[in-house]
Every structure is written in structure tokens, then in C-alpha cells.
Design a protein around this nucleic acid. Structure first.
Lengths: 107, 107
DNA sequence: TTGACATAAAACCTTTTGGTTCTATAACTG
DNA sequence: CAGTTATAGAACCAAAAGGTTTTATGTCAA
């Protein structure tokens, strides 16, 4: 009944406000776990767990560089969630929906 | 850091696959709790709880009619989640993002 | 008014979530 | 090599999530 079955990990990743804030941070630029953690009041392991969940949802990609793990945003995953929601676009903006369809077709 | 603070109830509502399926059902037409429940393997109270969470996120609106509660989709709430995600659009489709901005401006 | 029906509400249970602290391990750096 | 740094990982905890069953309650229909 869920129109797109593999959206679960993404929506799960998006469910927590700290994780959404991390997404916003990483949209700016890639960061190490330590850099991300220093921006929040919670402990490093807590942030590491959030990052793992984001990784499971493919919302972030991790590059191991020496002893550092550099986390960067993978916007494609967010696109999946956005597309799920786009199915309902017609209910609140018929016009935008048509434009979107046009763009999808012609690109 | 979360660009839009009151998105939490919506994203929370969207986090569960059963609730997303309910959203899809109600997009079709409004339904009573019983009607919704009959489409799932879980019990009626479980569905009632899901509907309450959807209501808390303002994703559905409830009209009490006699002994029935008629649940209908409120797409505006989904729009809020979609808009949060739209901030990241430019990362995966620069062109669509510009079109969207245009639509917002001229309507 | 009596029974069936739609839902509410309480009590309870198990698993997951989001967090902690403490202990390792591996990699740079002087 | 020695010390510091970046992260991993285990063990643990409280609260929330998702579910159940059982018990009420209000409403419709005969």
C-alpha cells in the first residue's frame, strides 16, 4: 500500500530532529563525527548512532580517511522522500504539480 | 538548526509505514476508523492510535458524525514536510528548484 | 427499549529509540 | 617510541513506540 516500499529507511532517518539538523549541517559541507558532535549538546556516541542511522538510510555517505570518518550528504536519498510526498502535491498545488511533471519529462 | 521548527509532528507521523499507507488510503477518500482498520492486519485500537498520531501532526482532520469518526487527509501538513525537503532540492535538481521558486512567486 | 455497532479508554507487554558511561583500538605527531 | 586524537564498541538505562486484550460508553435501528 506504501507506493514506494524502500522509503522506510529515509523516513526513519528524517523522523528525529537532531538528525534533520545534522542533514542541514552536512548540506553546507562534509564533516567528521567530531565536528558534527561539537555542534550538539549530546555526547559523541549519541551522534555516532544518529550518523549510522543516516547512513543506513543512505542519507549520508562516509569516507574513511586515516582515523577520520568524513560524512557527506547524499541528496538522492532525500529525493526519494520528496518524491513520495510529491504524489500528494496535486492536493495543494495543481499548478506546481504539472510543472514538475513537465520537468521530469523533458530533462 | 532545524530550518522549520514545527515539522517534528509531521515527520513523526510520516515515520511509520502503516501511517504512510493510511495517508495514501485517505488521499483517495475519507474513511471511518473501522474502514481504515479493515485494510490492515493489526487491531482496531492500533489503527486508532496511528490515526491519533496523524491527527496530532495535523496530517488528518477528524469529523465526528454520530458514532462515527470520519478521517480525511489534510494535505497542507504534508506540504510542510515537502517544503523542508525542498530546501535541499538544489542539490539534485537545480532546474526544478528554479521553476518552483517561479511558481511560488507568481501565483 | 433493547440490542448491535463504532469508537474510547485503560491496562499491560515487548521492542526500539535515544541517550549515557566506560573501555578499546588505530592513526597521526612530536 | 610515547602521547594525543578520532572513532569504535560494549553495556546499560529510561522512555517512547507499537501492539495487544478487556472494559466502557454513546448512538443508531428495529
Amino acid at each position: 500500500m506504501d507506493p514506494m516500499p524502500d522509503t522506510q529507511p529515509v523516513f526513519r532517518a528524517l523522523a528525529d530532529p537532531t538528525r534533520r539538523a545534522i542533514i542541514a549541517m552536512l548540506a553546507e559541507r562534509p564533516r567528521t563525527i567530531g565536528e558534527v558532535a561539537s555542534a550538539f549538546a549530546v555526547t559523541r556516541p549519541a551522534i555516532a548512532k544518529h550518523l549510522k542511522i543516516l547512513e543506513e538510510g543512505d542519507v549520508i555517505r562516509v569516507a574513511v580517511k586515516g582515523r577520520e570518518r568524513i560524512n557527506s550528504l547524499n541528496p538522492e536519498a532525500l529525493k526519494r522522500a520528496a518524491e513520495w510526498l510529491a504524489v500528494f502535491d496535486r492536493f495543494w498545488d495543481e499548478r506546481l504539480s504539472r510543472l514538475k511533471a513537465e520537468v521530469e519529462k523533458t530533462r
